[in-house]
Design a protein around this nucleic acid. Structure first.
Lengths: 232, 232
DNA sequence: ACCTGTGCTTGACTTTTATCAATCAGTCGA
DNA sequence: TCGACTGATTGATAAAAGTCAAGCACAGGT
């Protein structure tokens, strides 16, 4: 893998404690590729031939069924996706597409499984990563089942704000229709939901969100670490 | 752990390949307890002091938020729950209660983490288990986001039928209101949904489901292995 | 056999969410 | 500068799901 600056990758929790030899082994069969926006990298149901690592850009994980489609998550650098399918040697459960121009490292799944069997530290790192992924999905599942769309949006706004160190104004980092899909609603409804947050001091201008009344928003949203705190 | 017949447990994929010594170590600090029905074993947000293993009975994993409550999964013997919280040493994300009289093994989380660090085979077994759990939640998430409640019910019926080796009639194995909660709807709506399946040859008498027109039901439900096949 | 409680069902109604159609706003390229 | 396109918004309407209240059915205890 001569053309990849793999220092970032080596630093990932997943690989950091891996033996040098195993890491070199793993990277030997890997390759890097640049993809334009809106390219479908993998399709659910396909066999999991590669573990993917996003070096730059961003990836939409989504799923289709009977003509419907929903976004499940966004992957940002530097992290991996479809680890579970790779480990279980099972088909991908989600499809993935680039949202923007993205640089992806492709690691053959067979090599990952071999490294997993050979290197205890790697196996342990995978556990931590998977446990994290698992807990994240459980949280979104709770979000979806326990809250109305307005509540989901309110809490989403608060989570974003936290990511921006509490700024009272910030820009959404993706299209509204994708946000709608992630939150489990239609674009039309997202528009209306934003209006529904006006009484709680949230205003929207294009892609820019402004929180004018933090207290009021929090009182409405009732954020809960067991759903909203992605670090826990 | 003198009072537990642990042969079942030793057979679990999670422990099968573990070194004898590590296993003995792990079980030394564990204990078994019998619980009556409807006992809340753990509450979300609490620190994860024990890994739980269901020896007999059944467990409801659920979550509460602002007075609302939803069931997320049912755990049946012999298997573990809350593995992810234990491994990450993070608070439980779900609450758990006994549905019936249940026999539970409690393994101190610290011991599990120690065994995990010491025994590579155990670490690998945990990976497989977690990957499985993760994929299961992703599937229910897709079910919830991509389907209407009628479609979810139809596919649920088909999944149950599969579990009973394709029998055309079988009994639901839990209360309808809990089924409603699992499927993300109200009990009233579940009643109506069952009626909605009548045109597709599904009839319900109390707890007994009869499938009279398999083809018609499948045509409506459009089951998909990437959502409904729990073995994949 | 008869209460009594619990869970299930039903009907009427409300709220929430989706759909369809039209319009608007901003971007990009000719 | 002007279309042409794409995504966002709005309004009207419909469908889906939830709520509330009443009635029913069955099981368990007396």
């Amino acid at each position: 893998m001569p053309d990849v600056d793999d220092t970032d990758i080596r630093q990932l929790d997943l690989f950091a404690d891996m033996a040098d030899e195993t890491y070199a082994d793993l990277m030997r069969g890997s390759y890097v590729q640049n993809f334009p926006p809106q390219i479908e990298l993998i399709t659910e149901g396909d066999p999991s031939d590669f573990l993917h690592i996003v070096e730059s850009g961003s990836i939409d994980l989504f799923s289709r069924w009977e003509g419907r489609e929903t976004s499940l998550a966004t992957v940002r650098p530097v992290s991996t996706f479809i680890l579970a399918a790779t480990i279980r040697d099972a088909p991908y459960l989600m499809s993935a597409r680039t949202l923007e121009k993205s640089r992806i490292v492709l690691v053959p799944s067979q090599d990952v499984r071999r490294a997993f069997a050979a290197d205890g530290n790697f196996a342990r790192a995978i556990v931590t990563e998977l446990a994290q992924c698992y807990r994240t999905v459980v949280k979104s599942h709770k979000d979806l089942k326990l809250r109305t769309s307005l509540e989901r949006l309110a809490n989403y706004v608060l989570r974003q704000q936290k990511r921006r160190d509490g700024a009272t104004a910030f820009n959404l980092d993706f299209e509204k229709r994708r946000l709608a899909s992630v939150l489990g609603m239609t674009p039309e409804n997202l528009s209306r939901a934003f209006k529904g947050l006006l009484p709680y001091g949230v205003s929207v201008d294009g892609t820019r969100i402004t929180i004018k009344d933090q207290t009021s928003l929090e009182q409405f949203a009732k954020p809960n670490p067991m759903i909203d705190d992605f670090s826990v």
